[in-house]
Design a protein around this nucleic acid. Structure first.
Length: 278
DNA sequence: AGGGTTCCCTGTTGGC
DNA sequence: TGCCAACAGGGAACCC
């Protein structure tokens, strides 16, 4: 499930792979996930790759942007030879180490023969052409605008703190994995209402969000559980080895050995230690 | 307006 | 063992 650290990892790698390349043609295998006119970007060069929250924005020489959201199961894979794209290991959900595969929705071909594959089995993700980078309203949690004061000002909601952490119009980039781990790190119960947290708790939580997101980036993102997330070369991320509660239902808490509990909030799974997180 | 629910999709899981 | 309903999940769209 790609969140900020996963998108940031992809961004850093694709910057090396793609900057300077000229778009030759675009194969659209599922129209709904690339609804715009490909002619808007053909022959443009890739100038930069940006990210705000979970949205990746490929900046082009003609002023356009290719905005990309991977949603639940999106993958971006780069191949030097797009017409013979073979990866060292099988690509999750593609049932093959060769692309395009059944999960491939869009292929962006470059003039030098290389290509970028957009795979997405669930069909929720998208690539849109726009005149500006797309973004959620919230401040990106890796940016310098993400201050403790900003964070505390966004805790003015009567909703449960877990829901608030994942609200992209408040904080951009935090999804289920890192929200769970940040709450564990800060010892805050996910069901607590955001506006009832003490100033000390919001302070700890602010530091915890920064810590787990930075850890996620350091280990190239999380490929735990369904293992759908991969780097652009098809390899897996490593954060899942350092995750404390996400998808650890029934396993002992790393701090107190109490069994990790799973509950449902807003239709999503939450994992927490009922003893450590009060 | 803010808070809550449903739906989009398809692979996986679990009950019978 | 095999079938099939239930489940999972980010965020837009909807309702109250």
């Amino acid at each position: 499930m790609p969140e900020l650290p996963e998108i940031e990892t992809i961004r850093n790698i694709l910057k090396k792979d793609l900057i300077g390349k000229k778009i030759d043609k675009i194969d659209i295998l599922f129209k709904k996930q690339f609804p715009d006119e490909p002619a808007l970007v053909i022959s443009a060069k890739i100038v930069d790759i940006l990210r705000t929250g979970k949205v990746l924005s490929i900046k082009l020489s003609n002023g356009k942007y290719l905005n990309i959201h991977l949603k639940l199961s999106g993958q971006l894979l780069f191949a030097k030879n797009a017409n013979h794209a073979v990866f060292p290991q099988e690509i999750p959900m593609a049932a093959s180490n060769k692309l395009p595969a059944r999960s491939t929705r869009v292929v962006i071909h470059f003039k030098d023969g290389s290509g970028l594959f957009f795979n997405e089995i669930r069909k929720f993700g998208w690539i849109k052409v726009s005149d500006k980078p797309e973004r959620a309203k919230g401040v990106d949690v890796l940016s310098s605008d993400f201050t403790k004061e900003y964070f505390q000002s966004k805790m003015n909601s009567s909703r449960q703190i877990k829901i608030v952490l994942m609200d992209q119009d408040r904080l951009a980039g935090v999804g289920n994995i890192y929200a769970n781990d940040a709450l564990f790190e800060a010892r805050v119960n996910p069901e607590k209402k955001a506006n009832l947290l003490t100033k000390t708790e919001t302070g700890h939580l602010y530091e915890a969000v920064k810590k787990v997101i930075q850890l996620g980036v350091k280990y190239s993102g999380s490929s735990g559980g369904d293992k759908m997330y991969v780097l652009p070369d098809g390899s897996a991320g490593g954060y899942q080895r350092y995750s404390s509660v996400y998808q650890k239902e029934g396993k002992p808490c790393v701090r107190c050995k109490t069994l990790i509990k799973r509950i449902k909030q807003g239709g999503r799974s939450s994992f927490f230690c009922p003893k450590c997180q009060k």
